[in-house]
Design a protein around this nucleic acid. Structure first.
Length: 549
RNA sequence: GGUCUGUUGGUGAAGUGGCUUAACACACCACCCUCUCAAGGUGGCAUACACGGGUCCGAAUCCCGUACAGAUCACCA
């Protein structure tokens, strides 16, 4: 076979490798500086597993003073979704994981572009032509039907499945045969010609798992598709990461089984492969079974799920960091002021089995985080969140800014602040009744089932309640007053003689609490009353008494 | 079926041959505190290292086998 003739037949106008490589000088890196990339395909929402890889990429690049870039892997034109790239950019922005080099719409940053694979066609073609010239790639005209048939034969014979060895029949085509088929317009793909031996093994070093013994690749994988002149993932990965100078490839462990192919592909173009970090899959318990978190079944697989509920970016990153390195949590409690970018990340400490993204744990992390924020900071976050996800509430908190901050400040500046907010959408659930716009929407007490005695309630507000009291005075006065209406301050006394009392002070407080919040659970009553003010208390009192008397 | 990877309490996990009578965190339960809730405090979850062999003075840790689970075997990434 005359490879030169074949190469010119298939790619008459392709650039040479030298011409292409001249555009991509070696990166000027110091020892240990990592070049990483986030390389999503724009086929849907951002999956949490991909985002975890992305976070690792980012941490690796930033902690080594290296480069983190974004590459749009849009070679699958059939599955491409137009808005997907926008979503990806939004997620990166939301989490402030910003690439140093990227290409989006009219913007181009970085000297190793294009960063969109569909714009790199001539680059791939130069490499493919070069492989053909070396006898390491060839056109294959096998149809889907032929391939399926071959597969069935392999299954019956209990052989390995694939296009390799004697099954790779298009390997043997003569130049004349190829020329004839091409002239006849028969569609074809380009396959890599493997020289590997499946029975031979080699050592592959993964940064997470250490040394692994893998069989050599012997599959003649498709490297260029027939329906469009773009490469498959495998080939694009090899060419792009070589030219763009990627030092570390972070990807899900589902890629582990194609490592032998990638290693052989790198060797075939005379390049050193990058270091690999195969991170664990994010899994989920589904009844008895454990499975990969799924785009279709699990809403929490999508990064937008967390944003919509109002998890702060910080909480999600914290939760993922604890998954990535389980000693992260401990480190962070010891170094509470430090950013996750100062954490000494170690790939070898990463879990090697499936990682369970625990929403309970996320909530806990998030509550701890909110507990540390000031009321003003929470207000700001809430402002941004509601602007996008709850415009009605947004208008309300805008109107009552100072008041909302005071609400958020209840039991906050103490040694043991409240921990009842995990997501921004919790805030409305917690404080809706403190806004008259919500309180008076219909009968506020429609869900109150218990029949409360009204003894002393009206009198309390008329004769005793004083807005100026300190909390201590307030409670003492309340106790004193309630005891006149057969409420006791002593639990013991009440237990001994329940008939003699209407209840304990707790009961009296409960009635007031229900009156102003419609619920028997709320933050500190003293603060709520104070914030509500005399007039608004009075109005609620009147309605309350009217309904319950 | 082939290949690869795993398997420590309810959950996530620490652990790389002696410091382990196996950490820590979350969840759950009980009690304490308390005007309710959220917290906070104390304690509990009673035989947690898949199973069977082996190496060794000594194994959760190394080796072999078995079972189970997961990943992958596309012109999808």
């Amino acid at each position: 076979m005359d490879y030169k003739k074949l190469a010119d037949l298939l790619f008459p106008n392709a650039l040479t490798r030298e011409e292409v490589e001249a555009r991509y000088p070696k990166r000027n890196l110091k020892e240990n500086e990592a070049v990483t990339r986030f390389a999503p395909s724009p086929t849907g929402f951002v999956h949490i597993g991909n985002f975890m890889s992305c976070l690792i990429d980012y941490v690796l690049a930033k902690t080594t003073n290296g480069i983190f870039y974004l590459r749009n892997e849009d070679t699958d034109k059939a599955r491409e979704i137009e808005t997907a790239m926008e979503k990806i950019m939004e997620v990166l922005k939301h989490y402030q994981i910003l690439p140093d080099e990227y290409q989006y719409k009219e913007e181009l940053h970085g000297n190793y572009g294009p960063y969109i694979q569909s714009e790199r066609e001539e680059i791939y073609h130069a490499f493919i032509k070069d492989l053909i010239l070396k006898g390491r790639a060839y056109p294959c005209f096998c149809t889907k039907e032929e391939l399926n048939e071959m597969r069935e034969v392999q299954e019956i014979n209990k052989e390995r499945i694939g296009y390799f060895g004697s099954y790779a029949k298009c390997r043997e085509l003569s130049y004349e045969e190829v020329e004839e088929k091409i002239k006849a317009g028969i569609p074809y793909v380009i396959r890599f010609k493997s020289m590997g031996n499946y029975n031979k093994r080699f050592i592959f070093h993964d940064l997470v798992r250490g040394d692994m013994e893998l069989p050599e690749n012997d599959q003649d994988a498709v490297i260029m598709k027939s329906d469009n002149p773009l490469p498959t993932y495998h080939f694009a990965h090899v060419v792009d990461d070589y030219l763009m100078g990627t030092t570390h490839v972070v990807r899900g462990e589902e890629w582990l089984s194609s490592v032998p192919l990638h290693i052989e592909l790198f060797a075939s173009i005379g390049a050193t492969p990058p270091k690999y970090i195969h991170n664990p899959l994010i899994i989920k318990k589904d009844g008895e079974n454990v499975r990969k978190i799924s785009k279709r079944k699990d809403p929490e697989a999508s990064m937008s799920y967390y944003e919509e509920l109002g998890y702060p970016a910080y909480s999600v990153i914290e939760a993922l960091m604890t998954l990535i390195n389980s000693n992260y949590e401990e480190w962070h409690t010891e170094n509470p002021e430090k950013s996750f970018l100062e954490f000494p990340f170690s790939p070898s400490k990463m879990a090697t089995s499936g990682a369970f993204f625990d929403l309970e744990k996320l909530n806990n992390i998030s509550k701890e985080y909110f507990a540390k924020l000031s009321a003003e900071e929470i207000y700001e976050g809430l402002f941004t969140y509601t602007e996008k996800y709850d415009p009605e509430f947004h208008e309300i908190i805008k109107k009552y800014k100072e008041y909302t901050i005071s609400l958020l400040n209840i039991e906050r500046n103490t040694e043991k602040p409240r921990k009842d907010i995990a997501v921004y959408s919790d805030i409305k659930k917690l404080f809706w009744y403190m806004y008259d716009e919500y309180f008076y929407q219909d009968n506020p007490y429609k869900d109150v089932e218990e029949k409360y005695p009204m003894d002393g309630i009206k009198e309390y507000f008329e004769e005793c309640y004083n807005l100026e009291d300190t909390e201590e005075d307030w409670f003492n006065h309340l106790k004193e007053f309630a005891s006149k209406y057969k409420y006791t301050a002593s639990r013991k006394e009440y237990k001994e003689n329940p008939e003699a009392y209407l209840g304990t002070i707790a009961k009296f407080c409960e009635i007031i609490r229900v009156m102003i919040t419609t619920s028997n659970m709320s933050p500190n009553l003293y603060d709520l009353l104070k914030l509500l003010g005399k007039e608004r208390i009075k109005k609620r009192l009147e309605i309350f008494i009217k309904i319950f008397q």
